[in-house]
Write a protein that binds this DNA or RNA. Structure first.
Lengths: 327, 327
DNA sequence: CTGAAAGCGCTTACAG
DNA sequence: CTGAAAGCGCTTACAG
């Protein structure tokens, strides 16, 4: 920039005005503007956004924290978030938590140190204080997929309870009475709601059996899911259907069922919370719940920009999911 | 920082030394160090990395450019890249190109403006000049998945030609002679190598028929893939197997085959380049090529850090894939 | 062992 | 219409 100014015999300030598109405010002549732009191009001038950020206090960068970006569900969500962010001139830094509190804490610290203009995050169990820390800094914040009941943040979630209830209801109507639920043992809104939605409907129909509700530790999931399925298979009173609370549990579970020769749907009907890309090529019948992933991403960005623009209203958005059938 | 210095009656420089862990070099007393750290904690001091970056010229951020982060293959790769980067204290900004040159160019500009310390990217067709621009700035750079033959960059790829050859060879040995290939019409190393690997083996065995090689335009892929399959189905001389050059083509194709009642493997054997998470729950037999995704990600980071540390040797790394069977 | 000062590359009132 | 100057929050020789 100094270089350009020197060569043109003008001041750095003037160059800055032209290059940042504020030429009008500075009332700088068209001819001069062109000479500056021309020279900038010739010199392959690359503006240093770090310097600009330091000066303006704006980084044009947002942070996104998810459990695991390689998970199809979050991968797609981040794709939509990134495309929207790009459209608005923002870059996105993503960090994975692996559902681990320490990673979550570090992710938040990194993003705050980097002075991001806002954060979209999937909270981790027990991260309440960390989220409060962000809020105390007045950093624009949107929670997605889950939220903490004791903190009033903006959040975008789906109708977990209701969608699960409807799916189970459907299965019951098909005649499947003894239905099991396999879910993580994590105390987070989205998951507890799904479980609750199932249980309440089963109770309402008088077919609830608490032994058929299996809780899985995230860290040891493969083994525990397999054990759960073995247990269910060996139930004296035959289990007819399994509701898998997440796509990952579903994939692990069905893989194991194949290995064990448990036929779907002959031996067991299956329900999956979330869509799997590959339903399309598997020829097994699956009833599944399709969350509006694109909408979640876009609403999240929208709500975040509302805050970046100055709004301090906490918005609570609940989107509806669809129940679908794979065949 | 000024605040801390004032309260303790010392200079900003001293605080900086303590907080950035350079206390020893500055030979600052233990007791003073503790007081500084203590106060920083009390005040919830958050270092401004933007300021630090401007001063040091290092952002501790790397950029990653991929076609589409919601694609399982790139999603997993980025996961491993991010975990490694995190471990080394780096954050990562990811941007999608959607295989579009304009997006690719913009992505590179954004990353350069943000002064990232290095870039890992999946090149887009025709982006040669853009990559040269990065190199002329001496920004550490690693290409993954593909590379340009006319530019000497560091790259990490897999043995596309060889893996495809081996897979087709396997199928031929199983007795399937009339084999088709469906591939994108994109002139990029990874894809052309896959196609070439298939064709050369088919020729070697004297069963090559150019009408069975179908080229798909990326932008109109769904329709063209369906048309290709219809064409293959209607071949007078029965086609026995289809080699899908990417997982996305595979998913679209097999979905359509189901719709059309084409039975796998009764009517048609299928081969897929890349693994799909959900092979595990689909009970159709698929021969597939598994690229070492984690290794690609980790090698990429490693090669990038080599350059960040000053190396200017272009490394060319080719990793081996495995041929696997889904059942 | 510690402080004062310059500098990183921009932006933005302010004065003319 | 344009320039000189201060400032963003750090780091880092340098002097003492």
């Amino acid at each position: 920039m100094q270089d350009i100014a020197d060569r043109l015999g003008i001041s750095r300030g003037t160059v800055s005005l032209v290059l940042s598109g504020k030429a009008k405010e500075g009332r700088i002549g068209d001819e001069l503007q062109n000479r500056v732009k021309e020279l900038a191009r010739e010199l392959n001038y690359i503006p240093n956004e770090i310097a600009r950020s330091l000066s303006t206090g704006v980084t044009k960068t947002i942070g996104v924290i998810v459990p695991d970006i390689s998970n199809e569900f979050f991968g797609k969500m981040i794709f939509f978030i990134q495309e929207q962010a790009k459209y608005h001139g923002y870059a996105v830094i993503t960090i994975n938590t692996n559902e681990c509190l320490k990673d979550f804490d570090e992710a938040v610290t990194i993003l705050m140190n980097k002075q991001v203009d806002g954060i979209i995050l999937v909270p981790v169990e027990g991260g309440n204080e960390i989220v409060k820390k962000i809020m105390s800094r007045k950093i624009p914040l949107v929670l997605i997929d889950r939220f903490y009941e004791d903190i009033d943040t903006t959040y975008i979630v789906t109708d977990n309870y209701d969608a699960s209830s409807r799916a189970i209801e459907l299965i019951l109507n098909e005649g499947y009475k003894r239905n099991a639920v396999i879910c993580y043992d994590i105390n987070l809104f989205a998951l507890t709601e799904r479980k609750k939605g199932c249980i309440d409907v089963l109770k309402k129909h008088g077919v609830y059996d608490e032994r058929l509700i299996k809780n899985i530790h995230y860290d040891n999931q493969e083994i525990e899911i397999e054990k759960a399925i073995t247990d269910l298979k060996n139930e004296p009173d035959k289990v007819e259907a399994i509701f898998f609370c997440t796509r990952r549990i579903f994939l692990t579970g069905v893989k194991y069922m194949h290995q064990q020769g448990i036929h779907i749907p002959g031996d067991m009907r299956v329900i999956c919370f979330d869509e799997v890309d590959a339903f399309s090529f598997a020829n097994i019948p699956v009833t599944y719940i399709k969350q509006p992933i694109q909408q979640i991403g876009e609403k999240a960005i929208e709500a975040l920009f509302d805050q970046i623009r100055g709004s301090d209203q906490a918005e609570h958005i609940v989107l509806n999911s669809e129940i679908k059938f794979s065949l």
